[in-house]
Amino acid sequence: MRRPFKAGLYRSYIDEDLRRTDDVDIFPVLQQRGFTAIITQDRNQLFYEEERRGLREAGLHWVGLVDVKGKGIRFHSQALSALATVLPDLIGSTLATPHAFYVTPDHSKALRTVVAEPI
């Protein structure tokens, strides 16, 4: 994701040395480091109010990969193709408040749709 999308900074929790950090503790750290969004499959971050509040307070958009199936290269290719299709719109987003974006791989469509809701 780093090469084609130079407008953003893409780093993993491993790159950021946050492997054993609880979600509610990660959000303020990401905010301090200048991140504006998190890409994840962890829907619990939206289900549990403490985590939703943490996302809101940190000003982080939640970009969720929904229904990505397979293992290994199949999983990664589905996730990357879905993200590559929608990231230009997300990067250009002017939403002032944190939103949740649900990204679903759908290989039957040339463009994937994204469902967004306020966090």
Rank of each mutant, 00 (worst) to 15 (best):
R53T: 06
R2A: 15
S93Q: 12
L9D: 14
P118A: 03
L90M: 13
V114W: 04
F5H: 14
H76W: 15
R52E: 07
A79V: 07
V68A: 12
P118L: 06
E49V: 04
V115T: 14
R56P: 03
D106T: 01
V86A: 03
D106V: 00
R3K: 12
D22H: 04
K6G: 14
P4Q: 08
P118H: 02
V103D: 04
H107W: 14
L83G: 03
A116H: 05
D23M: 05
L80N: 13
D25Q: 08
A82E: 05
P4R: 09
I26G: 00
Q32P: 01
H76V: 13
R20V: 05
L90D: 03
K109F: 08
F101K: 00
I14H: 04
D106P: 04
A100E: 10
D23K: 05
G92I: 01
P118W: 02
L90W: 09
V66S: 13
A116G: 01
L55R: 02
V29G: 01
I39E: 07
T104W: 05
Q78A: 15
F5V: 11
L80D: 10
F101S: 03
V29Y: 06
K69M: 15
G8K: 07
Q32S: 11
T40G: 01
V103I: 07
P88Y: 02
L55K: 01
P28M: 00
H107I: 12
L83P: 05
K109L: 14
K6C: 06
I26E: 09
D106R: 05
V29T: 11
D23H: 11
T85D: 15
D23W: 12
K109H: 08
Q78Y: 13
L83Q: 00
Y48W: 08
G54L: 00
L90A: 07
L80R: 12
F5Y: 15
K71D: 15
G72A: 04
G8P: 10
D15S: 09
R11Q: 15
K109G: 02
G34V: 00
A84F: 10
